[in-house]
Simulated scan of single mutants.
Amino acid sequence: MESTELAELAAFAAVAKHLSFRQAATERGTSSSAMSHSIRSLETRVGVRLFHRTTRSVSLTEAGEMLFARLSPALMDMRAAVDDLNSFRATPFGTVRINVPNSIAPFVLGDAMEALLKGNPGLKLEVVATDSLIDIVEEGYDAGIRFGERLSQDMIAVRIKSSFRFTVVGSPSYFAGKQMPIAPYELKHHTCIRYAFPSGTIFNWEFFKNGEIVRVEVNGQLTVDSQELMVDAAARGLGLAYVWEDRAAPYLRDGRLTACLEDWCAVEEGLFLYFPSRRHQSAGLRALIEAMKA
């Protein structure tokens, strides 16, 4: 098979996976017009339409679905064969794509990224930070990071951090003239900064003490989709924030924020790097796992 045919088939597989020429082009490191040209060339060569295209959507034809089903395992085997060449190299090469919650990304990736990339100059790391719950297989990621209770059973999980902890914080100016809450039910008397997931769902604050779990639906004027914004707003006296303790730490150290309800803020479940159990484990992914474990 000629290189042009292989390139067209790879382009087809990328578009079929994402059902988007733009996303496929991003994955392949090319332009949408180049992807469209490859697909038109492939369809002309095989004499069959592989995609239904409209101005708003892309979908596979019956022939396209058949080709994608047959082609995907073959391309995966080819990638695995190329990756096996890493055993003859001093360090791995290629690209590893990882998905991580935006709210905790800086606290779990910093040291690992530095060690991984400096120790493996032939390796590229693509990190997408989002608090949306996604299917890493469907979206084409090599691995993801989540808390243990959110993992599906068909994934291999490697613990990478023992625990995270939430804390409730407010500024001295906010607490001036107010009594600090000593139990979660007292939050109804306070202005709170709410957090919204990308889906629009509002995150309820969760507390634990002496075997009792308490979930509180807080109220306030401000709703944000970023813990960084929550901390900044709390430091400006706009209300109480419920955030990762690591994110609030600089503000707590210099006195811009004060913690409360600390005896109700339990340690969270450990954090895990996870990846599909049935997928070929590339040398790059193995290097990432070791860096995260270290």
Rank of each mutant, 00 (worst) to 15 (best):
T61P: 08
D83Q: 11
G94C: 02
D111S: 12
A112N: 10
L109T: 00
A129S: 15
K124N: 10
D142E: 14
S59L: 09
L133V: 12
G110P: 00
A112P: 10
L71A: 12
G144A: 06
F93I: 11
V82E: 15
R150E: 13
K124G: 05
S87G: 08
A81N: 08
S72D: 14
N102Q: 13
P73Q: 15
L109F: 02
L60A: 13
F107M: 01
R89T: 05
L60S: 11
I98N: 02
A115Q: 14
N120Y: 02
T95E: 14
D135E: 11
P106N: 03
G148S: 06
I134E: 00
S132Y: 07
L75A: 15
S57T: 15
R150T: 07
F88A: 11
G110V: 05
E114F: 13
T130W: 07
G144K: 03
G148E: 07
A81T: 11
F147C: 06
F147L: 08
I98W: 00
Q153E: 10
Q153N: 13
S72C: 12
E139F: 07
L60D: 04
S152E: 07
P121N: 08
Q153K: 14
L75D: 09
M78Q: 11
G144S: 06
L133M: 04
M113T: 14
A81Q: 10
T95K: 07
F93E: 12
I134F: 00
D111I: 02
P73N: 13
A112L: 12
R89K: 06
P121E: 06
G64I: 07
S87M: 04
E149V: 05
L71W: 15
Q153P: 03
